[in-house]
C-alpha cells in the first residue's frame, strides 16, 4: 500500500516539498529581523512617515553585555559626507527601555565621516535600532540584538 502511494509521488510534488523546506528557515529569519511594534510609530516620526530600508547603517554592539548600565555602541553610516550627499540625523532606539528613544545625533558634511560612538543603558535583553536620515530624504536602518545579564534602569533598583 505504502509502496503504491510512493509511486504516485510526482516530480512536481518532490520539488514543491524541497522548495518548502528552503522557505521555512527563510521566513523565520525575516520575522526575527522585523521591527518591534512599539518602535514603528517613533521611527515613522523620525523619518517623516516612511519606514527605513535595511542597509547602509552598521550598528556595532556587544552580543552579550554583563551590565546594562553602560554598553558600548558604535554606529557608522555609508555616506560620502559631501554637501550634496550626507547624513543629517542618526537616531538610536531601544525596544524595552522605559524611554525608547536613546539619542538623536545631528551631522553634516563638516563631519567628514558619519560615525558616532557612545555608551547606552539597556533595561534587559533586547533589540537596538539605529536609523539614519539622509539629506535627500531617504532613511536607512540597522538593528542589533544584545543579551544583557544585569539590566539598568529597573524601577526600584
Amino acid at each position: 500500500m505504502i509502496y503504491a502511494q510512493l509511486s504516485r509521488l510526482s516530480r512536481r510534488h518532490v520539488l514543491a516539498g524541497l522548495l518548502g523546506c528552503l522557505l521555512v528557515p527563510l521566513g523565520k529569519a525575516r520575522s526575527a529581523d522585523a521591527l518591534p511594534e512599539k518602535l514603528v510609530p517613533l521611527i515613522r516620526q523620525a523619518t517623516g512617515g516612511m519606514l527605513p530600508q535595511v542597509g547602509r547603517v552598521s550598528l556595532i554592539l556587544p552580543t552579550l553585555a554583563e551590565s546594562g548600565h553602560s554598553v558600548r555602541l558604535r554606529v557608522r553610516v555609508e555616506s560620502p559626507m559631501t554637501p550634496q550627499a550626507h547624513v543629517r540625523h542618526i537616531h538610536i532606539f531601544s525596544e524595552k527601555n522605559p524611554r525608547p528613544v536613546i539619542a538623536r545625533f545631528s551631522l553634516g558634511p563638516q563631519a567628514g565621516r558619519a560615525e558616532v560612538h557612545t555608551r547606552i543603558r539597556l533595561a534587559g535583553t533586547q533589540q537596538v535600532v539605529a536609523v539614519a536620515v539622509m539629506n535627500d530624504g531617504t532613511a536607512w536602518m540597522a538593528s542589533a540584538e544584545v543579551v544583557v545579564t544585569a539590566a539598568a534602569c529597573v524601577e526600584g533598583s
Binding site: S70, A103, R113, H117, T118, R119, R121
Partner: peptide, 27 residues
C-alpha cells in the same frame, strides 16, 4: 563648535549611560 562651526549636536535621553561618552569625527 569648532572655530565657529557646529560640528556635533546630540539630543540625549535617559538611555545614555552615566558620565556620557561620545566620539565623533570632523575635518
Amino acid at each position: 563648535v569648532y572655530n565657529g562651526t557646529e560640528v556635533f549636536h546630540a539630543e540625549l535621553f535617559p538611555g545614555i549611560a552615566a558620565n556620557p561618552y561620545f566620539s565623533f569625527f570632523t575635518i
